[in-house]
């Protein structure tokens, strides 16, 4: 396992996270936080940035330590690495970004259990060196961020009639979408959109997400 595979081009690594293997809409990973925080664009954006940073740092550090740890204990070590970066994020946000922390503090701690992060470490960081891991982590993190922002915008606009907390509609068109059940409807609708785009492009993606992992 020690020799590196040739990494795919940077554009492929970035696009894979954004579209083909989008963590939320293609792989259907970490749906729970995706539903919980996307009641407003701002919350989605802030948690998205936190996940992006943790994903990039975890992927890179996973790649760094893979030669010095025995593969038998890679899962506990990966969990530990994610926990380090999540705790670090938590402390830094609480100390220097108090307003943001008040909104997303509860969810930042939960990043430690996000399936997408450990799955990228296991599938990508174990086989590649640090620099491709940075791009892969960035792509996956961006995919998650874009997903949260999309869902947040849809739900805030329809459920509260506002965007970024600024009222754009004088009424609430569909209160249901901002409630937890509406979160699932929203994710499902955007998932359908992703599948529709895929069919329009000639149905190149493997069914149910997953597939090629580099």
């Amino acid at each position: 396992m020690s020799e590196h595979r040739t990494p795919p081009p940077v554009s492929t690594m970035l696009m894979r996270g954004l579209f083909e293997e989008n963590p939320i809409f293609r792989l259907a990973l970490s749906l729970c936080p995706a539903v919980a925080v996307t009641t407003a664009v701002k919350n989605g954006l802030m948690l998205g940035v936190a996940v992006l940073v943790v994903q990039v740092l975890s992927s890179m550090s996973g790649s760094l330590v893979k030669h010095i740890i025995n593969p038998k204990i890679r899962i506990p070590v990966f969990t530990l690495l994610i926990a380090i970066w999540v705790s670090a994020m938590d402390m830094i946000l609480a100390a220097y970004f108090a307003d943001v922390y008040q909104q997303v503090g509860l969810y930042v701690k939960l990043i430690v259990a996000f399936a997408i992060i450990i799955s990228r470490m296991e599938l990508f960081s174990m086989k590649h060196s640090v620099v491709p891991c940075f791009w892969d982590g960035l792509g996956m993190g961006l995919g998650f961020l874009v997903g949260l922002v999309l869902a947040g915008a849809f739900r805030e606009l329809l459920g509260s009639g506002s965007i970024f907390g600024i009222a754009v509609l004088p009424f609430k068109p569909l209160l249901l979408v901002v409630l937890p059940a509406g979160g699932f409807f929203t994710i499902g609708l955007i998932m359908a959109l992703f599948n529709w785009v895929d069919i329009k492009r000639g149905h190149k993606l493997p069914a149910g997400g997953g597939g090629a992992h580099g």
Binding site: V65, I68, I69, N70, I73, P76, V77, L80, L81, A83, I84, S87, A88, M91, I92, A94, A95, Y96
Partner: peptide, 21 residues
Amino acid sequence: GLTAVCLVAAMILGGLYFFTQ
């Protein structure tokens, strides 16, 4: 290996806690 990773983790987190608390 596990001890080394834990030690580094403890050092990073301890340092951050000291500065951010």
